[in-house]
Design a protein around this nucleic acid. Structure first.
Lengths: 243, 243
DNA sequence: CGAGTCGTTGAGAATTTTCAAGATTAGTGG
DNA sequence: CCACTAATCTTGAAAATTCTCAACGACTCG
C-alpha cells in the first residue's frame, strides 16, 4: 500500500502550492507534511474510490493517470475527467461528503493521500494555506471551462484536436514533454469522453496522422504541427503554449 | 445601481448557507450581512463582468439569468454556463484574480455582490463560514459533472432532453416550478452550449412537442412527460426529482 | 410601420454512427 | 519463450443523423 519511490517530485505537483506554500513557517510545513505523507499504489484497472464512498481524502496523482466516471440512472457511464500526474482528484465530493463518481486507474499509478479534515483544521490556523485551498478549487473550476469549451465544439476533428492540445498543455504545465506523450486511455474512453464513437476517434487519429498534424502509433502520440492542430481546434483551450 | 426589491428571498438563494450559516453568532451574522448587502441591476444583454476584469466579487443571482462565455483564440465563443436565479457566478476567477470569461444577462436581472476579500477575512474568524465556502466550491464542481455528463451524450435529442431536465431540476432546487419555466436564452445560445446548430435545436424542440414530451411555445417550456424525457436523456443529470 | 432578430421548416450535402471484418497488441499459461 | 486468447484498434460501406443554405412567419423595438 505504501510506496516509497517518488515518481513525481513535490515541486512538480499541482498541490505543491498546498503542500509547500511559500509563507509557511518551518513548524507549519512540518505539520503539513505529516498530514500529506501517506501514499498509495493503484494498479491499472483498479478503483481508487468508488461512487458512494464517503469523502475522506483528496488524491494527488504522483504517477500514472485516472479516469473519473459517473454512472447515469440507466446504467450508462460518462467519463467526466482524465486526471494526469500532478493533478488532483476528489474535490467535488466535499459538499455532499460522498463521492458521486468513481476513479479508476488507467495505468499503474501512485497517489498521495490528503486527508481533508486535517487539512481543513490546519488551514484554519494558517491563512496562507486557506488561500491555497481556495486557489486550487478555483483553478479546478477554471480548467473545467476549458473542458466545456472543448465539448461544445461541433465536429469530431475539433474536439479531438482540442483534447490533444489540452492534454499536451497539461503535461507542459507539469514539466513533461508536451510534444510527445502516451495516451493511457483506450479509444473507447476518449470516445465516451468526447461524445463520439471509438471508430470515429480512430478515423480522426488516422486522418490527423495522414495530414501530418500528429504521429500516432497506438497510444503514443507525437504532435508534429501544433499550430495546425490549434487551427483545427480553433482554440488554445485556455493554456498558454510557449514555443 | 441599487435595487431595493427582493426578487429572490435569501432563504431560496444558493448562498443562503453562506449568508446565513446556522452556527453563526448574531454578531457574526450582522458582520456578514454588512458585507453582502450591495445589489446590482443588470439589464438584458448587459455585461456583468468582462473577460479580463479583475476578480473582486462573487455574484449571487437574485432574479434573472446569465450566460458565461469564453472567447477562443480564433474569436469563436463558447457558452460554458447558464446561471439561474439563486446560483453563483465568478468562483472560477479566484486563482488567477481575473475573470477568464464574461457574464451577460439573458434578461433583466438583479445580483447580490459578495466581495470575496471581505468574505475571506470573515471566514478566517468563523470556521463555519469557511466550511460553507468549501461546500459552495465543491458543489459547483459536482454540478459541473452533471454538465459534462450532458455534453458527453452523442445525439441531439439526448443532449437537449438532458439540458431541459437539468434546468428543470435546478429550478426545483430553488423552489420554482420545475414543470413549467421560461428558457431565457435564444436557441442559438442553447445550440452553442450543446455543440449543435440552432436549427437542430429547434427541430428537436418541435419533435419533443409532437411526441408530447413537452409543450413548447417560443421560450416557454412545459414538461408534460418527465419520465419519458428522462428516458430520452438516459439520466437524471445528478438531480433528484421527486414526484 | 419597417428593420432587425428570432424561431421554424425544408431539402440536399456533409458528417457521424452502425455493423462487420481484419489487424494489431497485450496478457496468460504452458 | 512461445502460443493462444482476449482486448483493442483500424478500416470499409451503408444507414442515420446533423449541418448548411434558404425561405418565411412572428415578434420586438425604435
Amino acid at each position: 500500500m505504501i510506496d516509497s519511490s517518488l515518481a513525481v517530485s513535490c515541486s512538480n505537483c499541482s498541490v505543491r502550492r498546498l503542500c509547500l506554500p511559500a509563507e509557511l513557517s518551518r513548524a507549519d510545513i512540518d505539520r503539513l507534511e505529516r498530514v500529506t505523507r501517506r501514499k498509495k499504489v493503484v494498479k491499472a484497472g483498479e478503483i481508487l474510490y468508488q461512487s458512494g464512498d464517503p469523502f475522506q481524502n483528496l488524491y494527488a496523482i504522483r504517477s500514472g493517470s485516472f479516469k473519473s466516471v459517473v454512472i447515469a440512472a440507466d446504467g450508462d457511464t460518462q467519463i467526466t475527467h482524465f486526471a494526469l500526474p500532478g493533478e488532483l482528484l476528489g474535490l467535488d465530493a466535499y459538499s455532499k461528503r460522498i463521492h458521486s463518481s468513481y476513479a479508476e486507474a488507467l495505468e499503474d499509478s501512485s497517489v498521495c493521500l490528503l486527508p481533508f479534515a486535517q487539512l481543513e483544521l490546519l488551514a484554519q490556523q494558517v491563512p496562507a494555506l486557506q488561500q491555497q485551498i481556495y486557489s486550487i478549487f478555483s483553478e479546478e473550476l477554471r480548467q473545467e471551462n476549458d473542458i466545456l469549451m472543448l465539448l461544445g465544439k461541433r465536429s469530431a476533428d475539433t474536439r479531438l484536436a482540442a483534447l490533444l492540445i489540452n492534454i499536451s498543455s497539461r503535461y507542459a504545465c507539469r514539466g513533461y514533454s508536451c510534444n510527445e506523450f502516451i495516451l493511457s486511455m483506450p479509444r473507447t474512453d476518449i470516445a465516451n469522453y468526447l461524445g463520439l464513437t471509438a471508430e470515429t476517434v480512430s478515423r480522426v487519429f488516422s486522418r490527423f496522422h495522414r495530414e501530418r498534424l500528429i504521429k500516432v502509433d497506438g497510444r503514443v502520440v507525437k504532435i508534429l504541427d501544433l499550430l495546425g492542430l490549434s487551427e483545427v481546434a480553433g482554440t488554445h483551450c485556455g493554456y498558454e503554449v510557449d514555443g
